[in-house]
Write a protein that binds this DNA or RNA. Structure first.
Lengths: 337, 337
DNA sequence: TTGAAAGCGGTACCAA
DNA sequence: TTGGTACCGCTTTCAA
C-alpha cells in the first residue's frame, strides 16, 4: 500500500510538504502542489485514517453501541443518528453488544481510539456497564436511559407518561379487565411502562393487583401471551403490550383463533414502529418519534464534543402521544395531544 | 487518558513488558504480571485501538458500506453480517453512502486503515465506484452485485429467476393484464427483475410491450402507482412490484379506495421482508433469505481475509423461492420449491 | 524474563 | 514556501 512517503518521494518533496498539499493547506506553491497531487493520483494514494487520527487526536467518528441492530426500532434510531452525524461530516461506527453486560463493556473498550464520541443504549438502561475510563475521556450520551444515571446526559422517551396515556385510553374505551404484557425485567423502559399501567389501574379502577404477564419485547412473547389467554380462558377485554412487536404477535395469534383485535378485544402497544400502521387492524400505540430520539441524541453529543459542557440537565425527555387506531375503540380520537 | 507508558511506569517496568503482560503473553513472571495488571486496573487503562492497529497492521474490524441503513431489508442484512462477524470476534464499522457515487467513494476511502475487509453494496450494483487502490489492498466482497464485476467475489439473489417465478405465478392465477412497478433505473437488481417479468410475459402471453411503471423501491412509489391505476382507470388484473415495500404501499392505497388485493386485483412483491407477512392480505413474494445473504457474504469475506484466494467463481447466487400468500390466488401453493 | 528502540503512517512544530 | 523531525500509543524485534 502506498504511503505518504511514497508520494513525497515520487514528487521529489518532503513528507511534510506532501502532507500539506494533500490536506489543502495554502502554503504550498502551485507547481509543487500539482506535482504532489499528480504523484498521489498516479500511485493511487489513499490516506490511512488510523494513522491520521493518531496524530490528529481525533477520528471524526461517532460510536454507537446498541443492544441489538435488528428490527425497526433500532433501524429508525440509527437513521436518525446517521442523519445528523452525516451532516456533520462524520462517520458512524456501529457496535452491537448482544444484550450482555460483559459484551457491552468489551464493545465499548474497543471504541477507545476509534471514536470521538459515544452514543450508548445500555441493556438495562443504566450507565453502570460503561467503563469509567471511557466516560471520563469520551463525550457520551445515553439513549433511552433514566435520570438516575448521574452525570451523563441522556435522551429518552417518557415511558411512564406514555403508558398512562395508553392505559387511560383503554379504560375510556370501556375496558375494565386489562392485562399488561411486560417487557424484560431488567429493562428500565419496560419497568416505567408497567408502573404507568399500574398507577392508572389503581387510580381509575381501584385495581391494586392487575394481571401482568412477563415478556421480552419480541414478537414471540406476544404470541405466547395470546396462547395463555386462550388456553387458560382468561377473561380480559383489553391488553396493553409493553411494545408494538409483542402487540403485533399477540394480535396475529389471537386472529388465528378467530379473535379480532378492536372487535373482540382491545389491544394497544408502545413505540409506534412503522409496522404498527400496516397490521390489520392498525395498532393503537404510544407514538414516539424514534428517529427524532436518535437525531436529538446525536445533536446533543456533537455539542458536547464541541466543548460545551453537557450534563443530565441537558437531557431530553420526549413525551409520547397517543395514536389511536383500529385495534382499540375510536371514541376519543380527538383526545390526541 | 492513561497510556501504556503510565501503566509501565506505575508498575516499574518497561512498556515492552507492560504490553506483553497486558496481551497475555507467557514470557512474563507471575509477580511482574500481577504488578502490571494491578497498575492497569488502578489507572483504568483502556488500550488505544487506533494505535494498536497501526502497529499490528490489522484492525479486527469489518467495514460495511450500504446505500442506506434504513428499512427491513438492510436491517436483516446487517443482522446476518453481524452474526458471523461477531462470532469471528470482530467489530462492524458501518458506513452509509447515501446513494451517491461520490459519497460512496468518499465513504470507502475513509475505511482505509480502519478495516481489514470490506462488504460493499454499490448503489448501481457495479464495482466501478470502488477506488482501485482499496480493491487491491483490502479484501472485498460485493453484496448484491452482478457477475459482470470482473474479479471481485459477490453474493447476490437471482433476481431474474425470482421475477420469473412471480410472474409465472400471477399468470397461473389467471392474470392476463399484468403491470410491473419497476425499481430504480440504475439499479441492476431492479433491471433483472424487470427483465424476468418481460421475458415471461413474452413467452407465456405473447406480450411484447407490457406496461412498466417507474419506481424507486420506496413505499410512496407504490402508493403513487396505485393512484395512477385508479385515476387513469387502467384495467389491470395484477401488479408485480419490484420489491415488497412498493407492493405494500400499493396495496394500502388501493385498499383505501376499496380495492382489495387478492380479491379485486392480484399483487406480488419481491424480497420477503418480515412486513410481508403482517400486511392484510399477506403478500405473495419472491422469498430471499436476506439474512443468509448477509452472513454468506461475511463468511466469504472472512475466508478471503484468511488468505484464501477468492474470485468471482466463489460468488454465491441465491435462488429465491415463491412464497404464495393471500395477495394472490392460492391455486399452486404446492408449487413452491 | 526484561528493556531499548525501531517503526506503523501521518501531522505539525520549528528552522531554514 | 519548504524540509527535518519529534511525536501520537502501541507492538515487536533484537540484545542483554
Amino acid at each position: 500500500m502506498t504511503t505518504i512517503r511514497d508520494v513525497a518521494k515520487a514528487a521529489g518533496v518532503s513528507v511534510a510538504t506532501a502532507s500539506r498539499a494533500l490536506n489543502g493547506m495554502t502554503n504550498v506553491t502551485r507547481p509543487t502542489r500539482e506535482r504532489i497531487e499528480a504523484a498521489a493520483r498516479k500511485l493511487d494514494y489513499v490516506p490511512h485514517s488510523g494513522a491520521r487520527s493518531l496524530t490528529r487526536q481525533r477520528t471524526d467518528t461517532i460510536g454507537v453501541v446498541l443492544p441489538d441492530l435488528f428490527g425497526e426500532f433500532f433501524s429508525e434510531m440509527i437513521r436518525g443518528i446517521d442523519l445528523v452525524v452525516h451532516a456533520a461530516g462524520k462517520t458512524l461506527l456501529l457496535g452491537n453488544m448482544h444484550g450482555s453486560a460483559v459484551e457491552t463493556g468489551q464493545a465499548l473498550r474497543t471504541m477507545r481510539g476509534r471514536v470521538d464520541g459515544l452514543l450508548v443504549m445500555p441493556p438495562d438502561s443504566s450507565a453502570e456497564t460503561i467503563p469509567d475510563a471511557l466516560l471520563r475521556d469520551i463525550p457520551t450520551v445515553l439513549l433511552s436511559a433514566g435520570a438516575e444515571n448521574g452525570t451523563i446526559p441522556f435522551v429518552t422517551v417518557d415511558n411512564y407518561a406514555g403508558a398512562k396515556l395508553v392505559t387511560e385510553h383503554l379504560i375510556d374505551c370501556g375496558a375494565r379487565r386489562i392485562l399488561h404484557l411486560a417487557g424484560p425485567q431488567s429493562n428500565r423502559d419496560a419497568g416505567e411502562r408497567e408502573r404507568g399501567f399500574r398507577d392508572v389501574l389503581r387510580a381509575r379502577l381501584g385495581q391494586d393487583e392487575p394481571l401482568v404477564l412477563p415478556g421480552d419485547f419480541h414478537e414471540e412473547a406476544g404470541r405466547e401471551a395470546a396462547r395463555r389467554l386462550l388456553h387458560e380462558e382468561l377473561e380480559y377485554d383489553a391488553v396493553f403490550a409493553g411494545n408494538d412487536m409483542m402487540a403485533v404477535g399477540l394480535m396475529a395469534e389471537l386472529r388465528d383463533a378467530g379473535i379480532e383485535a378492536g372487535r373482540d378485544i382491545l389491544v394497544a402497544g408502545f413505540d409506534d414502529i412503522p409496522l404498527a400502521r400496516y397490521v390489520t387492524p392498525q395498532l393503537t400505540t404510544a407514538h414516539s418519534d424514534i428517529m427524532r430520539l436518535g437525531s436529538s441524541a446525536a445533536r446533543l453529543l456533537l455539542q458536547a464534543m464541541g466543548g460545551e459542557q453537557k450534563g443530565p440537565t441537558d437531557s431530553l425527555v420526549i413525551k409520547p402521544t397517543l395514536a389511536v387506531r383500529g385495534s382499540t375503540c375510536k371514541i376519543d380520537r380527538e383526545k390526541r395531544d
